[in-house]
Computed example of a mutant assay.
Amino acid sequence: MTQRRLVALVDGHVQGVGFRWWARGEAAGLRLSGSAENLADGRVRVVAEGPEGALTELLRRLPSGPGRVDEVVEEWAEPVGEQGFATF
């Protein structure tokens, strides 16, 4: 099972609607570690690490989160050892 790191930049109306907490719950349900944080430009940055299949599923779910998702830009990398899931 290949471990990977996903960085997803979620654009739209995603701040102030509970998107970070929703993403945290989705990631926890998939047993992923990482974080979700609001960016100054209005996007939410979701970082997750774990099995590639679970990350792909999280990526598939992101557009259905609360608010309005206009675009999700993904970047894949090698994991760095995230533990737990934080929100900022």
Rank of each mutant, 00 (worst) to 15 (best):
T87Y: 06
A86S: 14
G12K: 07
A36Y: 02
L39R: 14
G42V: 09
L6Q: 05
E71T: 12
A40H: 13
T56E: 15
S33P: 06
R20M: 06
P51L: 14
G81M: 09
V17F: 05
R45T: 11
G12M: 04
A40L: 14
V47Q: 10
W76H: 03
E57T: 15
A77P: 00
A54M: 11
F88A: 14
A23F: 05
W22V: 08
W76Q: 06
G84F: 05
V7Y: 04
E82D: 12
W76V: 08
A54L: 09
A27S: 02
V17H: 03
G81W: 04
L32G: 01
A54H: 06
D11P: 03
A48N: 00
F85D: 02
R61F: 09
E75C: 07
V14T: 10
G25N: 14
W22T: 11
E71K: 13
G42W: 11
E37N: 09
R24C: 02
E52H: 09
E49Q: 03
L59I: 03
V14P: 00
L6H: 00
S35H: 07
R61W: 06
V46N: 02
G53R: 12
L58E: 04
L30G: 06
L55H: 05
E82W: 08
L32C: 01
R24W: 02
L32Y: 01
L32F: 04
L59A: 10
A27W: 00
R68Q: 15
F88C: 13
V47R: 10
F88N: 15
G67E: 05
R45M: 12
Q3S: 14
V69G: 04
D11A: 14
A36L: 00
R61Q: 12
A8N: 04
R43I: 07
R43E: 01
L59H: 04
E71S: 08
E74L: 07
T56K: 14
G18F: 05
L62W: 01
H13E: 15
N38H: 13
G29D: 13
A36T: 04
V69K: 00
E37K: 14
A36I: 06
G25D: 08
T2C: 13
G67H: 05
A8L: 02
D11E: 15
F19N: 07
V44M: 03
R31D: 14
T2I: 14
D11G: 09
A40I: 15
V69R: 02
F19Q: 10
D11C: 12
A23C: 08
V7D: 08
V44W: 01
M1H: 15
L9V: 10
R43Q: 10
R68F: 08
V72C: 04
Q83R: 15
A8G: 04
G50C: 10
G53E: 14
G16D: 06
E75G: 13
E52I: 08
G12N: 09
A36S: 05
W76A: 03
P63M: 09
R68G: 08
M1N: 13
E26G: 07
Q3C: 11
R31L: 11
T87C: 13
V69Y: 04
W21G: 08
G18H: 03
A36Q: 02
V47T: 13
R24F: 06
P63F: 05
G18V: 09
R4G: 05
A77K: 07
V73E: 11
R43L: 07
P66D: 11
V14R: 10
S33M: 09
S64Y: 06
Q3W: 07
